[in-house]
Nucleic acid binder design. Structure first.
Lengths: 110, 110
DNA sequence: TATTATACTTACATAAAGTTATTAAGAAAT
DNA sequence: ATTTCTTAATAACTTTATGTAAGTATAATA
């Protein structure tokens, strides 16, 4: 009997997507390049520490590019590479799934 | 200027998918119902502790169903609900992305 | 001199995940 | 009767990841 097994590339993909915040960061950047402070504004509750960690990992994985503009104060912009932009379809499907299935719990009024 | 913001349902979706192992567990179950020991066999390096935690969460979120068959020894089978099966398209896109972009580092043959 | 701004870093605390040993229930073997 | 086997976990403990709060560097402005 032939046993099912996972694809190693898929496993590696989820070493990225399976980390907290990664899916949200990439989603933000699909909207266009963003600065560090844009990301902390847009992503609720992410801390500077973890955002910095995540950006380093994503840059290391070739998913984002960090561009430095020597303005005053310095402007640093993060943008997606082709590899990063190519995640759009996958994240769009997550979005569609979420719209169909995720229920937002309302707080009781009163 | 209208500011971009994340969709709350999408954020909640990534509270699931953004956890370690979740994407792999669901991928396994898309292949068909599986037992606890099947999952530990198929998913490399997952521990019983975390698998048990994850299965409880996924059951709680209505993504999987836990069925008990009172055989000897007991047989417990996990299967996807419609909500869970509906993640197939999203995970397929992750798979395609992974096949295109993820490079597997070979160990030097020497 | 003190304050503002951006993009972080540092030290410390808590939460999540990993490791190893153990449990429960029932059957079967010794 | 006691040990052994099986599945599906759980318990105690260690390590890693994430969260929190404060601090740093640079240069301009008040």
């Amino acid at each position: 009997m032939i046993k099912f097994s996972l694809c190693p590339r898929y496993e590696l993909a989820f070493e990225l997507l399976g980390k907290k915040w990664t899916g949200l960061i990439i989603r933000c950047l699909l909207d266009g390049p963003k600065r560090f402070s844009d990301l902390t504004d847009i992503i609720p509750h992410i801390s500077a520490k973890v955002l910095a960690d995540r950006m380093k990992e994503l840059e290391h994985q070739g998913i984002i590019i960090r561009s430095v503009y020597p303005e005053i104060p310095v402007k640093i912009e993060y943008s997606l590479t082709e590899k990063g932009r190519d995640l759009e379809k996958a994240l769009e499907q997550v979005q569609q799934w979420a719209e169909k299935w995720i229920i937002i719990k309302q707080k009781k009024s009163e």
